[in-house]
Simulated assay, not measured.
Amino acid sequence: AAMTISTYEEMGQVNTYVLLPMSFLCGTFFSVHTLPEVVRYFIQLLPLTHTSYLLRGISLGQPIALESLGVLALYAIILFMAARWAFLRLTK
């Protein structure tokens, strides 16, 4: 976000419209299984959902969810490539 915004106020919009809803919907405070099925499919695509699954599983001594690790690795690769592209675009 820092490479695409131009003012501090725009970062507030990212927090308001992206991070805040994601923190409430992605299983951080309550189970995503209580959400409607249509919403749950969308929530399963977000990275915070899988981070919550992994952290909850580790804290409870459960096996690591490989699906969540895969989703987070995919996000890391995609976002790294997007950040690289944005950085190269700014430096030209």
Rank of each mutant, 00 (worst) to 15 (best):
T51D: 12
Y8G: 02
R84C: 03
P21F: 07
L90R: 15
T91P: 01
M3G: 03
A1C: 11
L88V: 02
H33E: 14
A1M: 13
I5T: 08
A1V: 12
L35F: 08
C26F: 02
L79W: 14
L66W: 07
L19I: 09
G61W: 05
P21G: 08
T7K: 12
L46V: 02
F80D: 05
C26R: 07
L54M: 01
L48G: 02
M22Y: 04
L90M: 15
L69V: 02
T34R: 02
Y41R: 15
W85T: 00
I5W: 04
R56C: 07
Y53Q: 01
A83N: 12
A1K: 11
S6M: 09
R89M: 08
A2N: 13
T4Q: 10
P36A: 13
T7L: 04
Q13M: 11
R40M: 10
T16K: 15
S6L: 10
C26A: 07
L60D: 09
L88P: 00
Q44F: 12
L60H: 10
T28C: 06
M11D: 04
V14I: 14
I64T: 03
L48Q: 00
G70L: 09
L48I: 06
M3H: 09
F24A: 03
T51W: 15
M11L: 13
M11F: 12
S23E: 11
L79H: 15
T49I: 01
S68Y: 03
L60Q: 15
H50L: 01
L54D: 00
L66K: 12
T28V: 10
R89P: 01
F24E: 08
E9P: 00
P63S: 10
T51K: 14
A86G: 04
H50M: 02
G70R: 08
